Simulated assay, not measured.
Amino acid sequence: MIKVTLTYPRRGDVRFDTDYYLGHHVPLAARVFGALGVRRIEVEVVVDQVRATEPDVFAVTNQYWDSLEQARAAFADPSVAQVRSDAHNFYDAGPPTVRYSTLHIAEIPQEDANT
């Protein structure tokens, strides 16, 4: 599984409209990327950060894809232009930082409920 992470950094007096992002942009992205095969989209609105006066990012969005090739093809698809062009409606600092990662999950052992 591939995780694509989009990060919206705080930079100076940059505007980030959380209500617009959650109410319009995320549903738009879910429709467009859903048609291209994304498995799941998670959004984190950052409210605090350890050892900082304020968080260094406004939000982090994680998308989950079956393969790196599928994710790259989706981001190159012409239909994604409508998602990109909507970003100026909620964020003033240009495109988000995007990174592709492999996903590894550590299972937490559970105690036997019968003991």
Rank of each mutant, 00 (worst) to 15 (best):
A30N: 08
K3L: 10
N62P: 01
G12D: 13
E54R: 14
V45I: 15
T97V: 12
D112Y: 00
D92G: 15
E107Q: 12
Q70L: 00
V45Y: 06
F90L: 12
I105D: 10
P55E: 10
V83M: 07
G23F: 05
E111S: 04
R40T: 07
G37N: 00
E107S: 14
R10S: 03
V83R: 08
R84N: 14
R10Q: 11
F33L: 14
A93K: 05
P95H: 08
V14P: 02
Q110W: 01
I108R: 05
I105V: 12
V46W: 08
E69S: 09
T115K: 02
R72M: 07
T102G: 03
V45P: 07
D48W: 06
Q49E: 15
I2F: 09
K3P: 03
T115I: 09
H104V: 11
V46F: 11
A81T: 15
T18Q: 14
A113Y: 03
T61W: 01
Y64R: 02
G34A: 13
P78Y: 01
S67L: 06
F58H: 11
E54K: 12
L36H: 00
V80E: 01
A81W: 06
R31V: 07
V80I: 10
H24F: 09
D17V: 11
G23L: 06
H24S: 12
V26R: 07
P27I: 02
P55A: 03
R84H: 12
P27Q: 08
V46S: 05
P109V: 09
V45S: 07
T115A: 05
R15I: 13
V50A: 13
V83A: 10
S85N: 15
A59D: 07
G12Q: 08
Q49P: 07
H25R: 08
E54H: 10
M1N: 03
H25Y: 13
P95A: 09
V45A: 07
D112E: 04
L6D: 02
R10I: 08
K3W: 11
I105A: 09
D77F: 00
Y21I: 10
A106T: 11
P78R: 01
Y21N: 07
W65D: 00
V83Y: 08
V50R: 12
F90V: 12
R15C: 02
Y91L: 05
P9V: 05
H88K: 12
A76F: 03
S67H: 08
P78G: 05
S67T: 15
N114T: 13
H104P: 03
D48Y: 05
R84A: 14
G12H: 05
F33C: 01
F16N: 04
T115N: 07
L68E: 09
S79C: 01
H88I: 09
R15Y: 02
E44H: 14
V14G: 15
F16L: 04
T7G: 04
A106S: 11
A35T: 01
P96M: 11
N89I: 04
Q49D: 14
L103Q: 13
P78Q: 06
P96F: 08
E111D: 11
E107D: 12
I105P: 01
Y100L: 06
A76D: 15
V80M: 09
A71M: 00
V26G: 06
A81E: 14
H88W: 07
R51D: 15
I105E: 13
I108V: 11
Y20W: 14
R39C: 02
